[in-house]
Design a protein around this nucleic acid. Structure first.
Lengths: 205, 205
DNA sequence: TAGCGATCTATACTTTGGTATAGGTCTGCC
DNA sequence: GGCAGACCTATACCAAAGTATAGATCGCTA
């Protein structure tokens, strides 16, 4: 029966998740209210299979707590859990040796599946974390772009020159320059490279 | 016992994977050599739990085959398997309704775990697909960049102008131009926007 | 109908980006 | 010592990017 140690400073969150995990699966779940308590607990019990650390928790200090935990117990798998962190944090966590990243927006079922996945030796990030949702793409910052400006931005994201874009859209190069200039100011950036990066970061195109 | 239908036009690949899946887990594995054969097979058997489609296979036509399969059998889960596709293809596949993306570079164990994960109702992409590995970052395409060129590339990824880069690195603008020119040719791209996109896609910086 | 906004084009201009060539220093290595 | 490579600078030039202004068409709407 796998041993799981769940560390979170919110008692209610921690205890309900722990209770749920205990009922639905054959997990032996221990809990701790902060990083130090978790590490101390692991000092006594050397067979923790999975350590789940809340990202915002006393002792974590960003992802330094993750590094500390990994160093103290190299054999145990460590997952970061968070309610607020974005994809960048998730990727940083994975880069720094986490075995999984668990947003609190997961459903209970998915959490269980993710835990089983990690326990099987895999590394887990929810595939759609950070809202790749196409419906959200055109929202916000891009809403006020006209159709042509959007098409121009798309070509910009290919690293094309104004001349090439003009050819592709079958318009004059001057017109492309116009669209570029307008889309730059609408996006609040100062050159085409920033525009391309901006769109790419938001997973447009 | 879950029913899996594996469609791949390479007989050896298909049959060895199928055989492996049959031996290590309680999977009932059927096979097909192309998309049409797979869909036909599903017409007769209506309890396929997971359909695994090779990305490069007669009838696939990019991801149109995925869409076709999803439309024909909305209940079945569909995963795309590929030996060559990149992260963009994987994301497109997920956007178009795939339940998983399986690069052929996975280990056998991981494949099994991924399949179980998908069968459990989750959606799977290998978290590090496209090689996020820090150790691999400096390899390959970026290995022959000098230290200064690398720093210049980093600034390029911020969308900065040559003048700004010069200020940040405390060198003359001409020198920045030199570094930019050299790194463009080393990376095989034709302008700074492409260079920035190139580096970002590979998760450098 | 008048007006608005998106689209396209044109001319003209300045700034930035990219290339070419040449020459300088410094470090590490044979 | 001599050589190679990284790094820096200079001058010069052309191409590309971005700005400014002005005028035209089209479709939609008050």
């Amino acid at each position: 029966m796998p041993n799981i140690l769940l560390a979170d400073d919110h008692d209610l969150v921690r205890d309900t998740i722990a209770a749920y995990l205990r009922t639905v699966e054959e997990f032996n779940v221990l809990t701790a209210p902060d990083l130090d308590a978790a590490l101390e607990l692991m000092g006594g019990i050397d067979s923790i299979d999975l350590l789940i650390l809340d990202y915002n928790m006393p002792g974590m200090d960003g992802l330094d707590g993750l590094t500390k935990a990994r160093a103290a117990h190299p054999v145990a798998k460590v997952a970061i859990m968070s309610g607020v962190a974005n994809r960048d944090v998730a990727n940083s966590a994975m880069d720094r040796g986490a075995h999984g990243f668990i947003p609190k927006s997961l459903t209970a079922d998915t959490l269980v599946n993710a835990i089983k996945f990690i326990l099987a030796g895999e590394r887990y990030i929810p595939f759609d974390f950070g809202s790749n949702d196409p419906k959200e793409k055109a929202s916000g910052e891009f809403a006020n772009l006209s159709a042509r400006e959007m098409q121009t931005l798309e070509q910009l994201c290919l690293g094309l020159s104004n001349k090439e874009i003009a050819r592709n859209l079958d318009i004059q190069e001057v017109t492309v320059k116009l669209h570029v200039k307008n889309l730059l100011s609408k996006l609040g950036v100062s050159n085409r490279t920033q525009a391309a990066l901006f769109a790419k970061e938001r997973h447009l195109f």
